[in-house]
């Protein structure tokens, strides 16, 4: 039967039927490797990330790569047109994606992309938010929780300052109050966790199949 890995990071979602499941899996791996490499390069540029132990760097990246990619590629989800453009450049309609098995997650991914887009983040805000997504001290397996927490706090403080600065009108002296935009942005973190869990379940089902 046809094997389909309907992931936007997959160059060939419709697998060659002559290939074995193992070969299809390896092709998929080759498709997303450049994107993962970019996430690692991004992490290396987060001030303080390289000072963490190598195991903690790996743990954060293993746990957070999907979430970083979801933020980075959320613009591939066209809410208005109800389409998703894969990294190959191919654009698929909702019906096509559902037929490819991308059903349950799809709505949640569109919803996330839409909500993130409404915040109209600048590239600087998006970069800092992505760093906050990656540096989460509550990922399981972190060895030096204090070090990761410290870095996480620094990043959240910087993001808070940046977002509040661009949102609060000049002359407004409510320095202790966060802008609704910042609050909404932080609320995207649990949304990303939920998507990450759904994605993991999807991967498990593929592997078991």
């Amino acid at each position: 039967s046809d094997i389909m890995l309907a992931c936007p990071m997959n160059m060939q979602p419709h697998a060659d039927p002559s290939k074995s499941p193992q070969e299809i899996w390896e092709d998929f791996s080759l498709s997303f490797t450049p994107a993962v490499k970019e996430v690692v390069e991004f992490a290396k540029h987060i001030p303080g990330f390289s000072s963490l132990t190598q195991n903690d760097q790996v743990t954060l990246l293993k746990a957070g790569t999907f979430e970083v990619l979801m933020v980075r590629f959320s613009s591939l989800f066209n809410v208005k047109e109800q389409t998703v453009t894969f990294i190959s450049g191919a654009t698929y309609s909702l019906e096509e994606l559902r037929a490819m098995g991308m059903s349950e997650m799809l709505g949640a991914m569109f919803d996330f992309s839409h909500k993130l887009a409404t915040l109209e983040l600048s590239s600087e805000e998006l970069g800092l938010f992505t760093a906050v997504v990656l540096v989460s001290a509550d990922r399981s397996g972190i060895e030096s929780v204090l070090s990761v927490e410290q870095l996480q706090e620094n990043l959240i403080r910087a993001l808070r300052s940046l977002v509040n600065k661009s949102t609060v009108a000049p002359g407004n002296n409510h320095h202790n109050m966060d802008s609704p935009r910042f609050t909404k942005l932080l609320l995207k973190l649990p949304d990303l966790r939920t998507l990450n869990n759904m994605h993991s379940e999807k991967l498990l089902s593929f592997r078991i199949d």
Partner: peptide, 27 residues
Amino acid sequence: FSDPASNLGLEDIIRKALMGNLEERPE
């Protein structure tokens, strides 16, 4: 199959990229 990230070979890719020697994986 308790760890999807390991199933994907993600850890291997990440470790190599962190060390700056990510090479083309053989097909």
